[in-house]
Design a protein around this nucleic acid. Structure first.
Length: 84
DNA sequence: CGTATGACGTGCA
DNA sequence: GTGCACGCCATAC
């Protein structure tokens, strides 16, 4: 029995390196296509280093937010080859 | 249990 | 292209 939050965590953990997923995409795969906000809420509530939440960005390509600093998130993505 | 808030998404001006 | 407003879901108080 996987809750939406657990599902989202699994999805984000499955994101390959050098790739990014929008909150809406993750929410849709988790079961709630309209749960983009919920995904963000779960991410900030869940501080798991196993979860590359920095690979999750907004659908517009904006970085969104990050517990360690949004700027750091951009740096990580750029370091992985994810640029816009 | 009900209200308020937030790491979103889409639409319109 | 930028900015504002409305709607959705989950969590916190």
């Amino acid at each position: 029995m996987f809750s939406f939050s657990d599902n989202v965590k699994e999805i984000v953990k499955k994101i390959p390196k050098g790739k990014t997923m929008s909150y809406g995409e993750v929410a849709r795969k988790a079961g709630n296509k309209n749960g983009a906000r919920a995904v963000g809420a779960i991410m900030k509530a869940n501080r798991n280093p196993q979860i590359p939440c920095h690979r999750v960005i907004r659908s517009d390509g904006s970085p969104g937010g990050f517990n360690r600093g949004t700027k750091k998130k951009i740096e990580l993505l750029k370091s992985e080859g994810v640029r816009m």
